[in-house]
Design a protein around this nucleic acid. Sequence first.
DNA 1: GCTTGTGTGATTAACTGGGTTACAAGGATA
DNA 2: TATCCTTGTAACCCAGTTAATCACACAAGC
Lengths: 278, 278
Amino acid sequence: MSSSDSNENRNQAVELLQQLGLKEYEAKCFVALSRVPEATAKEISESSEVPRTRVYDAVRILEAQGLVEVQHGNPQLFRAVPVEEAISTLRDQYESRFDTLKDAIEDLDRPAESDSDSVHEVWSLSGTTAIANRTQQLVENTSDELFLLVGHESLVTDDLMGSLSEATDRGVSVIVGTEDQSVRDAIRERVPRAEVFVSKLDWLNTSSDPDDADEVRIGRVLLGDNSTILVSSIDPTTSKERAVYGRGFSNGLVVIVRRLMATGLIRSDDPAKRGGDE
Amino acid sequence: MSSSDSNENRNQAVELLQQLGLKEYEAKCFVALSRVPEATAKEISESSEVPRTRVYDAVRILEAQGLVEVQHGNPQLFRAVPVEEAISTLRDQYESRFDTLKDAIEDLDRPAESDSDSVHEVWSLSGTTAIANRTQQLVENTSDELFLLVGHESLVTDDLMGSLSEATDRGVSVIVGTEDQSVRDAIRERVPRAEVFVSKLDWLNTSSDPDDADEVRIGRVLLGDNSTILVSSIDPTTSKERAVYGRGFSNGLVVIVRRLMATGLIRSDDPAKRGGDE
DNA sequence: GCTTGTGTGATTAACTGGGTTACAAGGATA
DNA sequence: TATCCTTGTAACCCAGTTAATCACACAAGC
């Protein structure tokens, strides 16, 4: 069929619109309208699988949200607002929500950050964006020495390199290891004062349990000021990223990684796979 | 009670989070967690009105979204991600949705904008943000002459003045009328090359039908290049803004407004209140 | 009159999400 | 060891929402 690849986009658009708060019918109607200059309820129904009698409700809501225009008459004509306008209308809505939400949460009784060294606390969090944000945060809070190991190129975002660069600017000694040649080059260019080296990471993946050994791949390892650690892995089936995170000089996880580094295990290229221990 | 004003914020935060796609339980749990450094399921339940047995589900989802961290153990400890991180995680999600949505819609079969003068077509749309966006759009597309009448100060946003300023920069003669002194001053400063005058707008409200005469108040009137018109009104009960919009030199609505302006009805300050004044 | 197409409203079915209960596992205490 | 309490998982029910269908009023054209 002619619109075969367009079909892909249609479904994607419908789904995204639903995630943005529209109902199924509303989303379908809007997408249908976005494909033609204008249409009647009947036409919308035919090209959108939405029952005709329900097109009116859906479109009315869309109109109230500022996503379609109506020409009253018989029959009524409907028209989708241009993409840029639609997006920017939606974006405005959400931006204002973000702003007031931030204020509202900040005005709550404060967490008062239990700051002490948090001896053996290890926290876990998931989701690449969340982990990326936390990484960012940690880099920004490093004052002295930063060690970073990245297992996959896609995790080295522009923002991250920006923060790394800022870190070196304020005198932090930044050391980055990765397997990927292009990433190393990119970092050398964006963060010239960082020390970059090659790392294979295999030793991490095949260390403890041979069964699910190559099931998960390492995402990132970050050690800041010898006292804050973040290690993330990526589940290859779901490609979901999960991370553990600990802080405090005497934190168990921190101690282990510091030890590993001190013995040169991490930085050396082929670290003799120090066998069944862990 | 001590947290009386904090209560306000709590509810607001919960509502906003729900609007951002979280379920009630999830929102409440997150807010509860945001008020303390960390908490167990039991504690969350007590301070959030969420049944304890359901805290786990909610928190698990929050964790998957990167909004809370978990410390595994017995009992499990939960902790909300810092505000900045949370907001920025959410914002990232939505931004990426907006982007892909835009692409998806743009890749659909195009509207092909029925461009001709569209003789008597009049379209209506609603919602202040949508109308503001459309206004913006129209100002940007004006090449020659722009006439703008605003009935309420809040409608003159910073963005709008920016576009007006750009318009004058590219040689468009901009004429703005409003009743509000401060708005006139603001515009004179931000858009020095615009012509600003006083307008009462009463004549519009009380013109045709004496019954619902003072029911609605005029929002804005915009005439671009003598061929594009937008008129909006604000329902005082719902304070919802609705607009009609027409284009084409010979469009009925356009012709009327042009005529009105030619006879000086709009620009004169005290226009002899044609009809049953009030 | 009849027919066709448009718009409104009511009605039913399916689903989602809130609220509750049951219960297994693991410590702590006696 | 037996018992009690807490924690965590899972299943369930109920209600409100939303998808889907149906009935009908109205207007225009034949």
